[in-house]
Design a protein around this nucleic acid. Structure first.
Lengths: 233, 233
DNA sequence: ACCTGAACACCGTTCAAGT
DNA sequence: ACCTGAACACCGTTCAAGT
C-alpha cells in the first residue's frame, strides 16, 4: 500500500482542454438539443474537467455561443468561396444564400447567433463580405449594395428562423412525423370560418404538403428578381 | 390586542389576478429589459402575489411568452385592418408590413415569438390572414400566394430580428449613443485590408449613418418588386 | 375556483486555491 | 498558464395546503 498513496494510481488528474475542443463539444451539444442543452456543466463533463475551466477560454455563455457559431461558419464560408465566380452575380448570390440556408436548416440554432458580433465572428464578417462582393458586380450605388446584401441575409435568416422554430418534441422523436404534424395544423385551419379566413382556406392544401426549402427558394427569388430589376441586369 | 389577532388588520390578504393583468404586467417587464427580465418571481411581485399563482393562468413560461406576444399583436392587428383597402394590393401589403415592422422595432422581443404557435396566438393568425388576403387580389396561384405572404413575414421578422439584436448595455443606457456605436464599428471596418474586404469599404460610409427603417424598406421593396413582376401587375 | 410558501432540481458565474 | 471544487444568487416548476 505504501508508495502508491502520495500519487494518483495512474492517468492524468488534471484535464487539459483547448479552444478547439471546447468549441467542438459545444457545437455537439447544440446540435443534439439546441441552446438549452449547452450548459457549462454538461460541457465540462464532456470535456472531462471542471465547470470553471471553461471560463479560461470564454468570458460568458454569450461569448461561447458567438464563438461556437463562428466555428461552424468556417465550413460554410469555404463552401461559399468555392462556389463563386459564375458569369451572373445574381446566380452567385443565389448559390451563396442557398448554401447558408442549408447550413442553418441542419443547425437551426445558428439563426439566433449569426452576425451577432462580427468582432468575435470573423467568419460571419467574411461571409457577409463574400456576399457583398457580388453586388459590386452589379450596377448599383453603394447604398443599394449595402441594402441588397443585408436584404439577402435577412431572407435567409428570417426564413430559417421561422422554420427552425423548434417543432414539438413529438416530431423530433419521430413518433409523429412531419407530415402528420403539418396535417394537424391543416385540419385545424380547415375548420376556420371560410368567410373570415378565405386566405387560410386558399393555401391550406399548399401548406399541408409543403417543403421548407421550396418556400425559402420562392422568397429568395422574389428578392433576387427585385434586385435584378433594380440593377437593370 | 385581543380581537385583532385572529384576522389581518385590513386589506386583502390574498391577491387576485386576471389573465389580462398577468399579460399586461408580463408585457411591461418584457418592454423594460427583454425576455431575461420576465421572471415568474418578478411578475408575481408586480402582481402582488405568489409565484405559483401564475401557473393557474399559464402552463409554462413558453405559453406566457406566446400569450404576451399575441396580447400586443391585438393592437397591431386592428391598426393593420384599418389601413387596408387601397386600389393596389401591393401598396396594402407594404403598409401592413411597415406597421408590423414598427411594432417590432418598439418591442424587439416580439420577433422571437411571433407566429410561434398560431393556436395560442389567434391575432398572429388573423394578421397572417389579412396579409394573405391581399395576395388574393393578385393574379397568382395558391402556391405563389402562400409563398408571397410567408416571404413578406420573413422580410419583416428577419430584418427586425437582425436589428433587435440587443445592443450592448452602453447603448441602452444612453451613455454611448447609437451614432457613436455605429461609428465604432465603422472604424473597425475601415481598418480591414481593402484588398480582402472591398465590399466592407464600399459600404462603410453608408453603414455609419444608416437608418434601420430605410434598410428595412429597401429590403421590403425588393420583395414587393419581385412580387409585382410575378403577378404581372 | 383561485391563491400560497416552501421545496426541488437546476442554471451561469465567481473565487480562492491548487498544479 | 491552466485547471479545480465549492459556493452564490439566481432560475422554472411542482405540490400539498390553504381560502
Amino acid at each position: 500500500m505504501a508508495g502508491t498513496r502520495s500519487r494518483p494510481p495512474e492517468g492524468r488528474r488534471r484535464a487539459s482542454h483547448s479552444m478547439e475542443a471546447v468549441l467542438t463539444e459545444a457545437v455537439a451539444l447544440l446540435d443534439e438539443a439546441g441552446e438549452p442543452a449547452l450548459t457549462f456543466r454538461a460541457l465540462a463533463s464532456r470535456l472531462g474537467g471542471g465547470v470553471a475551466s471553461i471560463y479560461w477560454y470564454v468570458a460568458s455563455k454569450d461569448e461561447l455561443l458567438d464563438r461556437a457559431t463562428d466555428h461552424v461558419l468556417g465550413g460554410v464560408l469555404t463552401a461559399i468561396e468555392s462556389q463563386t465566380g459564375s458569369d451572373d452575380p445574381i446566380d452567385d448570390l443565389r448559390v451563396m444564400a442557398v448554401t447558408l440556408f442549408d447550413a442553418i436548416v441542419v443547425r437551426p440554432w445558428l439563426a439566433a447567433y449569426f452576425m451577432r458580433n462580427t468582432d468575435l465572428q470573423g467568419n460571419s464578417l467574411r461571409l457577409y463580405e463574400q456576399l457583398g462582393q457580388q453586388t459590386l458586380r452589379l450596377d448599383l450605388t453603394p447604398r443599394q449594395r449595402f441594402h441588397a446584401a443585408s436584404a439577402i441575409i435577412s431572407v435567409v435568416v428570417g426564413t430559417a428562423a421561422d422554420l427552425g422554430q423548434e417543432p414539438p418534441p413529438e416530431v423530433l422523436d419521430g413518433t409523429v412525423g412531419r407530415d402528420e404534424y403539418l396535417g394537424q395544423w391543416a385540419e385545424r385551419w380547415r375548420r376556420l370560418d371560410p368567410e373570415e379566413f378565405p386566405f387560410m382556406h386558399e393555401i391550406v392544401d399548399e401548406f399541408e404538403g409543403h417543403d421548407d426549402k421550396d418556400q425559402f427558394l420562392a422568397g429568395l427569388e422574389l428578392t433576387l428578381a427585385g434586385l435584378r430589376l433594380q440593377a437593370g441586369a
